[in-house]
Amino acid sequence: MELFQKIIKRVLLAVFSLFVIVTITFFLMNLIPGDPFMSEKANPEAQAALRAKYGLDQPIYIQYGKYLNGLLHGDMGNSYVLQKGRAISTIVTESFAVSMSLGIRALILAILIGVPLGCIAGLWKNKVPDACIRVISAVGISVPGYVIAAVLMLLLAVQLRVLPTSYNRPGGTVMPIITLSLYPTCYLIRLTRASILEVLNQDYLRTERAKGMSERVVIFVHALKNSLIPIITYLGPLTASILTGGFVAESVFNVPGLGRYFVSAINSRDYTLIMGTTIFYAALIIFMNLVCDILYQVVDPRIKLD
């Protein structure tokens, strides 16, 4: 019951955060020069007519009030440019479904590879496995996503011809998933390694050994559980960002996901879409952080949700 009340409190706080985010985004967005219809080749009168039609000729605070009002009624408006006339909620949910299906697989891959490799590197510190893993993770972190995507494509699709370049063909999800998961995998390796090294020096492990506990219990029960804490912190925002898709991976491999819209919506000043993607992303991050905080409490008794 106590937990339930705390969650309610957090949800209310989250609503407030979202309101702040909506406000800031709305005004920042209007500060960018240009508007959704500036690229229309049509004459100035036609542009003005379009603006009038969507209410963009009204003062900014009225536009803001109207937008908030719509939002409260669950209406995020329609896209102005990119998918003209379609409801933002439909665009976001459809493209998010695509991004999420890739993202979940990339996330699982990153955790399944990153955490164990990080443990191995930490437990064999300064030995051969550690050295190899560290080189790999350093490369993975420092090479930007578009390079990875391009190299993968060149290697697997053009040279070896084992995978298709496009997302909709069979096997087309493999390269986007690798591209998406590479950075988080490598980051998780480094995080886990650092965390486990920190924990291995803790006095309580010596206490466990002094009690006659086997190395198996010392490492797999006490050391691992303690080193999970910083990893959980990272997993919250990571999940939010990986589920909403990477801009690079989705652009290069032509994935019709949410990630692409983040940047293209801004470029084309598709106001309602900018708002839609931002609100969605912010809500997801807030939600994932809440999940993390609850998870924390499960793992670490010292942390209380408040």
Partner: peptide
């Protein structure tokens, strides 16, 4: 033998117990 016939207590009780 550890913890059974010979056992040990340590300097810093704040860090010598597993917090979890």
């Amino acid at each position: 033998i550890r913890g059974n016939k010979i056992s040990m207590i340590f300097q810093d009780p704040m860090t010598s117990l597993d917090p979890l």
